[in-house]
Design a protein around this nucleic acid. Structure first.
Lengths: 218, 218
DNA sequence: AGCAGAGGCGGACCGTTGGTCCGGTACGTA
DNA sequence: TACGTACCGGACCAACGGTCCGCCTCTGCT
């Protein structure tokens, strides 16, 4: 890129996503690619955008894109990760009820509520990423499953948190949300209600107790 | 479309999957393609098999495959439909508790239990089909959602069956089951337990009632 | 049985895509 | 300022999904 002197702006490369030792132009290009990719993914629909297009829109060569992100999956992961970061932080170290400190029941409700909101906000992107074929094994949102598992275990050590977490996450996968929101015009709050209710069923006894005792209704 | 006014043959359009009016060799070839496709999909993994390969394995030309099934999605649909037919019939006209006649609570449990069993049995295939990119809008298992909705409504008219059905189906999507079964070695019965429990949460009040009154526990 | 026509069959063909490679270039450092 | 190096770009490749059209086979009629 003949980029007239990569901008001197320092915080351009801040997004610690990239290593410190990264060269200035490299960092700038990563940012550009990420930005262009996001834009195209959301605009032209998920599967309708080629890597060529991303490179072109970003104003860089195709090789640059592949060098940076390995392959399509890598690019998707980077994109998703970007949007997910805030949520993760809020969960790990933010204020209750989403962050640590609140009773597990409340945290679970907050987690699911916020998750659905986030998915809805980023629907096009998550949809695009989710439904990519190559993603046979590597699944994004992996860390979400972990968090959810912890919450479930804390809520009721006797239930199978592994299974529960996966199923809950599956219940609100991008396809489901897209269908309900776009084709049936369901409101976000209804989705949030439903997923919370679903979760409540996981541990038949404990849940009703926590629901009443914790005031986890909201 | 040289078809001169609907053909006189009546059963031509009936079983639209295996048309009677189909020429003998055509039917044979369809069978061969379906069979080869199934084999390859399951063996070589989902995304790793090209239409070329299917045609070759079936011993027919590529054109034949596309003529028969339209495109990749069509082939997948045909394949899935094949395995799903039995389940559908059992639900629509088989004996209770899966078939009509049993209380909704029991039918729901039977439905979910059998569904998970079926998905597990056909996992590789469903996985292959599910995770195909082109499937942006058209989703297989569409009729399942409908059945499930009916059941849920019958169970408790006050709850949002649309959302519930989609979420429950999402909770047991192929990816989820594959992950739990293959990577974590979870048993099918555990999955069945969990999905039933999840469903139970959908209607907080009614469910516990039905659970006790219907004896839907098992 | 023989014939004629409809329809299926095959595989060459096309445009596009994900992904690779290497010569040239700009960056960061001594 | 001069150098080594890492990065950039876009030409390149193989493979794929899907289309097309001429040939051949099956089927229904006489």
């Amino acid at each position: 890129m003949t980029n007239p002197a990569a901008d001197p702006d320092p915080d351009r490369c801040l997004p610690l996503v990239g290593g410190r030792g990264e060269r200035g132009d490299a960092a700038a290009n990563r940012e550009r690619v990420l930005c262009a990719a996001r834009r195209l993914f959301v605009a032209n629909g998920p599967a309708a955008v080629s890597m060529d297009a991303v490179a072109a829109a970003a104003g860089v060569g195709k090789g640059t894109v592949f060098r940076r992100f390995g392959d399509r999956a890598g690019l998707c992961a980077a994109l998703l990760d970007e949007g997910m970061r805030g949520f993760q932080e809020a969960f790990l170290s933010g204020p209750p009820p989403l962050g640590p400190g609140a009773p597990a029941g409340q945290r679970l409700d907050a987690f699911l509520t916020e998750l659905v909101a986030l998915l809805d906000r980023e629907l096009d992107l998550v949809l695009a990423i989710d439904q990519w074929p190559r993603g046979g094994d590597a699944r994004p949102l992996g860390s979400l499953a972990l968090h959810l598992r912890v919450l479930l275990t804390e809520l009721d050590p006797s239930l199978d948190a592994e299974v529960g977490a996966e199923m809950l996450l599956g219940a609100v996968n991008a396809g489901v949300i897209a269908r309900l929101r776009r084709q049936r015009g369901v409101r976000v709050s209804e989705l949030q209600d439903s997923i919370r209710r679903l979760a409540r069923g996981l541990s038949p006894e404990t849940v009703s107790r926590h629901s009443a005792a914790d005031g986890a209704r909201q």
